[in-house]
Structures are given as C-alpha cells and as structure tokens.
Design a protein around this nucleic acid. Structure first.
Lengths: 193, 193, 193, 193
DNA sequence: AATGAATGAGAATTCATTCAT
DNA sequence: CATGAATGAATTCTCATTCAT
C-alpha cells in the first residue's frame, strides 16, 4: 500500500509544494492536489498513506537534499570566510531555486505530528550545525566577533531564508548579487569601511 | 461569569491571538476560542462578524500599535545609529513582549482576504518605511555601506522577527542582550574589529 | 407579558407582512424585523411571545378583517349575480390593497403550528363559505351551471387571489377593470356570446 | 444499500421533491434528505454542489418536462377549444400526478438565487406562452371573449395549479372530472345555458 | 494503479429566545 | 418598554479517508 510509480509520486510532491505554499498545509485539500496531479482524489492514497505523509516527505526530502548538497560544497573549502560566503550563497540560492519546497520546510513545522516533527527538527538542527561549525572556526581561527554562536547561526539562516519571500526572477539583482550583499552585511556590518 | 461588551471583545482578541499562534488561523476553531473566552460558540458573533474579522482586527490593531509605538520611540532621537539600535530593540522586544499578536501578524498574512489583505499590507509597508528611513539617513550622514535600502530593511525585519520563533523567557539571554547582539551583527559585522 | 403599545405592535405587524412576503416566514429573521420596526431584536418579545405568534396574528387579523368587510358589503345585496360581482371585486381589491398581508395569509398556512393552524383554517373555511352560499343561491334561483359548489368556490378564490402576484399599480388595468374581466370570465365563460 | 450514480442522484431529487413539499425549501434540511435517500449528509455533495442546486435541478427538470409534454399533446390538435381542454387537463393532471415536483415549481420560485431564478422564470414564461397562443387562436378563430390574453392565461394557470393544494386521491372527483369542470367554468361560465 | 461514491466527524455561521440591566 | 449580550441548537458545507469495482 501507499507506494506508486516514482514519476507520479514526484509529480504529486511537486504539486503539493506549490499548493501548500499557496494555501498553507491545513487549508490545502487533497482533491485539489489530485486534480493538479492529473488523478482522482482517492488515487493519492496509492502513493502516500496520508496528507501528513505528503508534508513529511516534502520536508524530509528538502532537508536531506540541503544537507547533502551543502556538505559537498563545503568539502573542498578550508578558509572559514570562504566557507561562510559559499554557505550563504547556497542557502539563498536553494531558497530561490525551490521556493515552494523551502517555504514549506521553513513554515509548516507546526503542522508535523509527533515523530515526523522530531525527525525534521533533527535534520534542521544538523543543517544549522553546519553553520555553527563554520562560525566557530571563524571565531577560533580568524577572531570573528561572535558572542553566541547558536544565536548568530539562527539569525543568519532566518535572514537569508527570507529572500524566498520577496525574490522575483525579473527583479533588480541576480542571486549572486543578493548573496554577496547579504554576505557583506553579515561579515563587515553596516558601518565598516 | 457574564460581562459587558468592550471587555469581552478584548478577551476574545487576546485569546484568539494565543489560539491562532498555537494552531495557526485555519486550524483554530471558534468553539475552542469561545470556550477560552468563557462564552458559547455563537456568542462570538456578537462581537465579530466572522472568524476572518477577528484575524483582521488582531493584525490591524497590532500593526497600528507597532507603528505608533516605534514613532514615539524614534521622535526624540537624531543619530541614525542610535535610531537603528532602538528600532531593533523595539522590534525584537515587541515580538517577544506581545509574542502572540506579533507572531500572527507575521505569519497569517496569507489568510487575509481581499481588502483586509490590502489594508494590512499597507500598514506593514508603512512600518517597513520607518526602517528604510533610518537606513537612508545612516547611508547619507554616516556613510553606511548599503547597496539596496529596501533589501536591507527587509533582511533586518525578517531576521529580528525570527527571534520570536525560538525565544524562551528562561533562555540564556535577556531581550536587551539579544537585541544588542543583533545590532552588533548588523552594524559591525562578524569580522570587524 | 408580550403586550406592548398598540402603535409599535402594528408597525411590527406591518413590517412583518412585508418581510415575510419578501423572504417567506422561515427565512425571515427577527433581528431584521426589529431593525425595520426601529427597535432591537429582544424588544419584539415585549409585543409578541414568539415569531409564530406574529405570523398567527397577521393571518388572523387578515382573515377576520376579510370576513367582516365582505359581510358588510354583501348585507344589502340580494341578487346572487350582483353579490358574486361584488365579492370578486372585494376579493381582488383586498388582495391588491394589502398584498403583503394577503400573500402571507394565502401562502404561509404550512408554517402555522397546531392550534394556530386550525384557527386560521377555520376562518378561511368561513370565508369560503360566503362564496359557496352565493353560488348555491345562484344555482337555486338563477340556474347557474355548477357541478360542485365547493370546487367552484375554491377555483374562484384561487384564481382571483393570484392577481396579487402580478398586479402593479402602474399596470394596464385598474382594479375595477381587472375585477370586471375576471367576473365576466367566470360568469359567461370564454365562449359565450 | 449501495448504489451507482445516476440512480442515486434521481433518488435524491425524488426525495427532495417530497421533502421540500412537506416543509418548504428553507425549512428542509439536508441531513433529513440524505437519510431518506439512504446516505449520509455529506454524500449529497457528491451529486449536487449545494442545496440550491438541488432545488434548481428539480424545478428545471420539471419545467422542461412540462413544456415538452404539453407540446407533444398539442401537436396533433387544431381546434383551439380542444387544445384548451387538453391543456387544462394536462396542467391539472401534471400537478396531481407529479404533485411534489409541480408544487415546488409553483411555490419555491422565491428561493431561487440570481441566475437560477432567471432561468426558471424564462422557462415558466415559455410554458405560459403555450396557453397564450391557444387563447389568441381562440380569440381570432372562434371569437372568444378575451380582453387581455396574458391576464387570462395567468388566471387559468393560477386556478388550475391551485388544484394541487386541495386534491386528495380519495376525494370526490377524478382528475378528469375536475379538469372537465374547470374547463366548463372557463369556457361557458357559471351562467351560460 | 485508478476510480469515484460514500463516510463521518467537524467547521463556521445563523437565529429564536432569554434575561439582567 | 427597551436594550443587547448571551445561549444553544440547528444548518449547510468541507474534507481526509476508505473501499468495492
């Protein structure tokens, strides 16, 4: 039960990300999701055991993918400044590339139940840990001015994720330009010269 | 347990803020809200014409209050650095001191309909404008390094509002300490000395 | 209880007739009725003990008035033809003069409960009896072609009452003209010469 | 007690006609309708999008059927007298043979909303036109005494439809007998000889 | 895998009625 | 007489989920 062809399943996940972003998870309805995925309401249950399961897989896939990709990017890099720059670039870029999925992953935590909640929180912490590690190294090796590592990691993640809420492809800046500005703000501050 | 009118209305608003924060607006139900306000489900409609109306008044009151309060704080201040520091302090503090209302104001925009949406967006823009003005002055008078004022205003608001998502009264830092660290991060950056 | 000043009471009855005609009795709501009568919802209960009571008094007043007036009209008349003519004239005229009240009286019987229903039915029968008596006399004295008195009485009443559903004061015919045409139709038929 | 689709839909319509006639449309409730149709309340919405939709389909089906049937009856007939006789016979018969549906079609017009209202009114006018055509021909070819065709058509329809309000299958007359008496009343009048 | 009718447990909302003031 | 907040039961409608076909 609850396992269909991967193609159809991915279509459903993709459409679910869009739909959940439009309406929020609780206000999204499975018949509409099915319609967008080109099937009937009942057929969703051949691919997922419940609405909750769809939300969970969406968020779980996204978190796993983010961790995996960021690790690959960071692997060859040593300098904490460079590591931070690339991390910020990745975080912003990923939020722009998959705005539906990241929006849901950032915003629908509240709607995860029990174990699903714990699993995603755990992956989110693992992702944040990557930021914290960089900051700690910067602090140790390059004397970055950090009073509290966790606090700064959270602040950075939160701020950069916000980009997905207003970014438009036809806007004033490219992703790289936005990332660079955020990086500069975070590293040298408003008042440095 | 019976009561006059404006008092009861305010109780409902207060409880609605809590309830909406706990469950989100769409998942909150009016019978539960009524129970918490000490009345029966139907009685809510003596004070509000609909569930949507409750959300709107909540957000509208909050946005108006934020604008009003921030203006009062800024009035006697001239130095843009000091203005920014106090603005950040206010923004974070307000998101924590009235955490339910502000959380909702940030997160339930999507659930406002038509004209309600437009009205709140307009107030939110007016609030953001206060940030932009400060940044513009800092740029002009104190040579702050800002490539795009709107972008930075958004980034700051986003980052500070995020505090409400993890702040716990029994946590490591006071509101003032958190605000100071955010201010430092934004003004001098991670790497300044 | 349930007995206020006659003036206000009559205003309520008048407005109720209009409102019930617009929406039908079940879909009419007492707050709206109160509003139109210039008072608050709860105040209606100083004049009537229930919504049902309003409907009942409306119909009861109307039926009583119709019987009383028709009797007065018929009293001095002997000739059954003339009696029928004047009866039709009265029936149509009354339905046009008080279209709201008569509409309700004709159409809301279904919504009367128990004893109220029986009382109104009884008055309606008494009113119909006036028609039947005329027809019976016409049959006896003037050889009217009637196979079934009750059936014809019903048919006449029904047909004439229908006028109130389409009559407009600015229409093609006066009340008297309409009444005369109905009278002619009923007395001489379509094909007489 | 499970069932395919068009059958169930027709059961619902049939039961709705009965229920609406018993209580009127506004006082009828869908749970009761569902119960009578052998399903749960919510299941009605598989077949109809709303309560209003049920009323509309009921009236629309009925009006279409009436027009269609009356046309078939009239087709082979030439003589306007005969056409009128058969039309009256049909109109009364249909109001009795399908008493629930026709009663509703006469009485629940007020409860149709917007476009539904306009559509049914338009069909009702088309039906009435069939009466008017007959009367016009009678007037032209057989010198019927008609001062206003529309007025007489309305009067006839109103009168005949009224039969459904008092007819009882165990009553004194058959449908044919009632129809014949109405026809006689209308054609030769009370006083003709 | 897919369908689509059916379920059944809510949800928001309405409203006649009550009653303390 | 009038108010208006409160009641509480009823109503339409929604929707995740099930399941026979």
């Amino acid at each position: 039960m609850a396992n269909g062809s991967p193609a159809r399943k991915n279509i459903i996940l993709k459409e679910a990300a869009k739909l959940f972003r439009e309406n929020g998870y609780p206000s999204s309805n499975l018949r509409e999701l099915a319609r967008r995925a080109g099937i009937q309401g009942g057929s969703i249950y051949h691919h997922f055991s419940s609405k909750q399961e769809i939300l969970f897989q969406l968020m779980d896939n996204t978190m796993s993918d983010m961790i995996r990709r960021l690790k690959i990017i960071l692997e060859p890099l040593d300098c904490p400044t460079e590591r931070l720059r690339r991390t910020i670039r990745f975080h912003i870029g990923y939020h722009i590339a998959g705005p539906d999925e990241t929006y849901i992953t950032d915003d629908e935590l509240r709607n995860l139940e029990g174990d699903n909640y714990r699993q995603i929180i755990s992956k989110r912490d693992r992702y944040q840990q990557l930021f914290e590690d960089i900051i700690a190294t910067g602090q140790a090796e390059q004397n970055w001015q950090i009073s509290d590592i966790k606090l700064f990691a959270r602040a950075i993640i939160q701020m950069c994720a916000g980009v997905a809420r207003w970014y438009r492809p036809d806007g004033k800046f490219t992703i790289d330009q936005i990332a660079e500005q955020y990086f500069t703000l975070l590293t040298t501050g408003l008042m440095s010269r």
